[in-house]
Nucleic acid binder design. Structure first.
Lengths: 191, 191
DNA sequence: CGGAAACAATAATGTAGATTAAGAAAAACG
DNA sequence: CGTTTTTCTTAATCTACATTATTGTTTCCG
């Protein structure tokens, strides 16, 4: 059952009986993605919230020179999306695709709102999720303002040890904010 | 009444009758801050959520060379704080002080939780707030990864026109992530 | 109002990290 | 499998931005 991970996750914060689980399940859509398959592009409206159950997704923007800048990686158990696009249902700026063969759960904006009406504790669940996400962004932003490339790399390795294993160096470079050439040089010319 | 701005703000998202307002008010503490007065330092536990009713606050970190890096400015109507420290009640990394003579409302962690129990719609209010904040951080992070110093400056001017007026250049530099010397040069040597 | 402190401008020099280019290695996939 | 695509490495050159230092200008507060 691909929804197992999600319910595990929910039950850390709010209780949910079998009937309620069934209701939540009825709002979910399971989707499989091939490696590199695109879910959203710049300009798309993020109609669904995305929860990753297998594989790994990433969100990124593409600058005016065509370079990718990665905002987030989402291994199993993580949510990913362009928050402004989702809450306002306007065209987003983030691209989202699968780094690996993946499986995700989708829930539409309208169904999230239905969920809030039928099961108010979900307001709490998503509030807690959002607050944790803010805490993460605050630290990432501070790191980006105050640390060197090497320190940001070390930080990434410490924070996401499992990702370092499976991601190409190039993607790590696009996350910490350096070119792949510079990251390679940095890792091979220590001292 | 210094709580007016807060209730105005709350009522954009959830309804609140007089009795409920009174209850919320009973949990609030008004505090005045002098220009440059410090509210939190690195290592402090952020026991209160902070809502600004007058003046302007800022949150920042100090790196190992003693340089300040500004995460956020909070003019009236904004919340400010170290989210991880607040939610987990552990020592924070952010410093918070008043840029100008200010007035703030404080609500303790325990009282926020009391609020959620007594008035569940507040879960919704803070969820919406948190989601908006995520949207802002996502865009700030992407900008920091993909834009030049000049583009980040232009962006800041467009996004916070009122702040540009009243902030010393030095603080804007610490927000966009350059030295004050470089910002000065950039603004005076165009072409 | 006057002295101290914070802020801004300018300039010389230094450096982290970008750019460009090219070849080698690895991985993807038909 | 082999070949096409992606990724990694190395190295030379370049530039956006940092550092250090000095001087002038505001702002602040007693």
């Amino acid at each position: 059952m691909s929804t197992g991970l999600l319910f595990q996750h929910i039950e850390k914060h709010i209780p949910l009986d079998a009937e309620e689980q069934a209701f939540v399940s009825s709002l979910l859509q399971v989707k499989k993605l091939k490696r590199k398959q695109v879910l959203y592009q710049e300009g798309d409206i993020h109609k669904y919230q995305v929860f990753v159950t297998a594989g790994c997704l990433r969100s990124y923007s593409i600058d005016h020179n065509g370079f990718e800048h990665i905002l987030q990686f989402a291994p199993p158990g993580w949510w990913i999306g362009d928050m402004r696009s989702f809450t306002t249902q306007t065209p987003g700026v983030l691209h989202i695709d699968a780094v690996d063969k993946s499986e995700i759960l989708l829930i539409a904006k309208a169904d999230v709102e239905r969920l809030y009406r039928q099961l108010p504790p979900f307001e709490r669940f998503f509030r807690i999720l959002a607050e944790n996400s803010i805490a993460t962004y605050q630290h990432r932003m501070i790191d980006s303002l105050s640390l060197s490339a090497m320190e940001r790399y070390d930080n990434f390795c410490r924070t996401y040890p499992s990702l370092i294993q499976c991601l190409p160096q190039k993607q790590v470079a696009a996350y910490i904010g350096v070119t792949p050439e510079f990251l390679s040089k940095m890792l091979n010319k220590p001292a």
